[in-house]
């Protein structure tokens, strides 16, 4: 099936002050695709995401989302175009209940069919329905992670970005997050995932990008990554 590029990066360079982190990244994310950004710590995964969502200004290069250039846009403007992030550390609001989290940001900004309603989100995460009245800080780590994903989905994003969504979670909770991501893929949600559980990611994602010192070292399909364990040891430290 032929997908159009929802997001495309060309010659992307970014960094912090004089310290350059990304050196000319070229990649596309197609509609309905699940793409992963892999690499060891400090290789530029978080910087790439930060640049994509407008948290860090690109020094050079171009980022287009839905055909529109977004490399100079503010974070809130990019979010309104349909990019939602599930941040590292969840960052739930302690003074909002679960239900309020899911209603406060709810919007179908891009007029998507099958919009994420409260009931659909509760269907995806039944645990959140049970905790509907709990405040953001009265949840376990796993529940907070589910809430962070559901909160991002409530904006009906065209692109969902997950930054280390399973980090620090118990295995049973991690499995629940993977199950949810499987379901999102099944409904055609375009997703960019940063995570370190490669064995799970090869089952979930369509394509993978391995970053090495701010450059794309390898890109390929799940079948290719699964069959070349040398890549795992060379670039991912697995």
């Amino acid at each position: 099936m032929k997908h159009e590029a929802l997001l495309s990066c060309r010659g992307l360079e970014a960094g912090y002050g004089a310290s350059q982190v990304l050196f000319g990244l070229d990649f596309d994310i197609h509609a309905g695709e699940v793409l992963t950004l892999l690499g060891r710590n400090g290789m530029g995964k978080s910087t790439t995401i930060k640049t994509l969502i407008g948290g860090l200004r690109a020094k050079k290069g171009e980022i287009r989302f839905g055909g529109k250039p977004i490399h100079g846009a503010r974070a809130d403007a990019i979010a309104r175009l349909g990019v939602a992030i599930v941040p590292e550390g969840r960052q739930c609001f302690p003074n909002l209940t679960v239900r309020e989290h899911l209603l406060a940001f709810a919007d179908n900004r891009n007029g998507l069919r099958d919009a994420w309603t409260l009931d659909r989100l509760y269907g995806l995460f039944p645990r959140l329905k049970e905790r509907a009245g709990n405040m953001g800080n009265q949840l376990s780590g796993g529940e907070q992670q589910m809430l962070a994903i559901a909160r991002a989905l409530s904006t009906n994003p065209r692109l969902l970005i997950l930054d280390e969504a399973t980090e620090g979670l118990a295995p049973v909770i991690r499995d629940e997050i993977w199950r949810c991501l499987d379901q999102l893929k099944a409904v055609g949600q375009t997703t960019l995932v940063v995570d370190k559980y490669v064995e799970k990611l090869v089952l979930l994602a369509d394509r993978h990008i391995i970053l090495e010192r701010g450059r794309i070292a390898w890109t390929g399909s799940s079948v290719e990554l699964d069959s070349d364990r040398g890549l795992w040891t060379r670039y991912l430290g697995v």
Binding site: A75, D76, A79, A84
Partner: peptide
Amino acid sequence: DNETRMAAMG
């Protein structure tokens, strides 16, 4: 409470 998060939510 979280300026970055609010910007990222649009």
